[in-house]
Design a protein around this nucleic acid. Structure first.
Lengths: 336, 336
DNA sequence: CTGAAAGCGCTTACAG
DNA sequence: CTGAAAGCGCTTACAG
């Protein structure tokens, strides 16, 4: 009836008399009326709800390597926190709720249908596995989606990402300007696109600067063999005077191990991290690192998704964000 | 039709022939069928979705005091991360999704109705304001709810909380055993119940140990006047030899300020925090602090809520969790 | 054992 | 300008 028209302020609300209008509004507020989003959804109206999906094949499979108060996967890490902060803020500004929808994804044929009819208008997909057909699968079903932190505009799906190549270039320039010539790269085993891009950019940057990319300076260390491999790097015949770690967590472990070995940071070893995590400013020495503007990126992604959902025009490309080099005290000119 | 019966495994599924059953199942999997949760919800079936509400009056009102990559409110802080970790884990285990539903709450009459018909089976309410009628309001509407981090079992609503009094007692015992007699307490202005309980327990503990509770040792410092007030505490005529800070963030600021003033930690000043945040193990010196088992608490709360939703019997009381004193290097016997 | 029908709470054409 | 009706996709009694 007319009530619906008035309460939604829908286009045809012109055809309702002012008296009726008032009658409806006052009755509604008196009864504390609030529309049933569920019933409304059945009629193909917006749910005003966005889903957040991490693009992992099985988001909960990672065993918790740390203690019980600690976190075991992305959404509960500082990385996910920063993203969630931006997502919630942007969603709230436009009147949307946010739902965690971290379902395991097999392939489009098996998994895509489970993303419809869930009371969600569109999905934010975080760091999807490049081999997964999640993005194309949802896209094929006409489900609005935006990709965070993986510049995959292949499927006409917008995405946001930090310019990893630029970030690496900034770090390299910083270290080169300080006078470093023996620069190592330390990463965890990871098949994330971003990590691969960073590694490749590092090698490219070395080449561009006329420095050799020594294979022994490129270290991949897991939690298990971290000490062993890093010790080998730092105590070799010609150890690097600076190491760029793929993330802050790794960089901080590196600082601690360097101290154990008896190296001074930064005098004997300059260290650069990636992320500007909360711990970065608190370690000794405070960590030089690259800040990814994660919250702004997530806000942008959320805005894009809502625009998509509301059928506003949207640029289906990668929206790049500039990294910021945060220079603290873990880098200095090399002593020798 | 029968399809519904088979696919849901509902109680009367006995009355369906095996042939039909198979026919339905194979058709369903072939079509990639997945029930429309929305339509199902209209028929008063579970949505399999839990809402998370932070109990603030206006969850988004807090201005961001830090930089743009940083977080401005609970759900995006490490505190919220740890909770979210437990919530998502427990929800996932029982097949539930989690929705952020951080609506501003005026009072039950105005706000409660907006929590129905939202496609959410029940709410996890984080640290509700004690003056708010949010818990009783939802409860009165028959909406399942569980309270996290505020031991308010007043309304027949179960809750989980850490035993704050025991935590304070552990810290005090630790400091007393080290030989401290001049112990300060440092807190931010806060009207959270937990913070009040900690403060009161601290005063009580002092009394129990026959120590005077000097008012000048009880410092409330905001972000704005932190340096001024804490400096006054530490440089007074008879400064404390140990300070218990109400949370790690405050404790870490205290360490930094102590260093600025030229005090050695822990020799000149022992410092204890609260939370065991990620930064606690990384500062210099590593911080002695109380770990709240936030993830396990949140898991328990989520389990309780799901039981409530599924009408299993639930103890409508406060479920207490034991804090853990994590002794690191920011505490030692006093030098004088 | 199976199929046709009612109804959950809305919104949107459609008559009056 | 307003009210009665159809239908969104399900589930659950209810006939056949």
């Amino acid at each position: 009836m007319a009530a619906s028209v008035v309460l939604n302020g829908s286009r045809s609300s012109a055809g309702v008399s002012e008296a009726t209008r008032q009658r409806i509004l006052s009755a509604a507020s008196e009864l504390g009326y609030s529309a049933n989003v569920t019933a409304r959804g059945l009629r193909n109206v917006r749910f005003k709800c966005l889903g957040v999906s991490c693009g992992y094949t099985d988001p909960f499979s990672t065993p918790d390597p740390r203690d019980s108060t600690n976190t075991s996967w992305m959404m509960a890490d500082y990385y996910g926190s920063y993203l969630l902060n931006g997502i919630l803020r942007a969603a709230h500004n436009r009147g949307y709720n946010v739902m965690h929808f971290h379902k395991a994804w097999r392939d489009a044929a098996h998994s895509a249908a489970g993303f419809r009819g869930q009371g969600i208008d569109g999905f934010l997909i975080i760091a999807p596995d490049p081999d997964s057909d999640m993005v194309s699968g949802l896209s094929a079903l006409g489900i609005p989606a935006v990709v965070i932190s993986s510049s995959s505009d292949q499927h006409g799906v917008p995405s946001v990402d930090v310019d990893n190549a630029a970030a690496v270039r900034m770090v390299l320039d910083h270290l080169l300007a300080l006078g470093h010539r023996r620069i190592g790269y330390l990463m965890e085993p990871s098949d994330q696109v971003d990590h691969r891009i960073r590694r490749d950019s590092f090698l490219q940057g070395l080449r561009d600067s006329g420095l050799p990319a020594k294979p022994e300076y490129m270290v991949v260390a897991s939690d298990a063999d971290f000490k062993e491999r890093v010790r080998a790097l730092l105590t070799g015949p010609e150890p690097p005077s600076a190491v760029f770690a793929c993330d802050d967590r790794t960089a901080i472990r590196l600082i601690q191990l360097a101290h154990e070995i008896g190296l001074r940071v930064p005098q004997d070893l300059s260290i650069v991290g990636f992320d500007d995590s909360p711990a970065a400013s608190v370690v000794t020495p405070p960590l030089t690192t690259v800040r990814q503007p994660l919250s702004p990126m997530a806000e942008k992604a959320t805005d894009l998704l809502i625009s998509l959902v509301e059928e506003e025009p949207v640029a289906t490309q990668t929206h790049w964000f500039d990294p910021v080099l945060v220079v603290r005290e873990s880098t200095s000119p090399p002593i020798s």
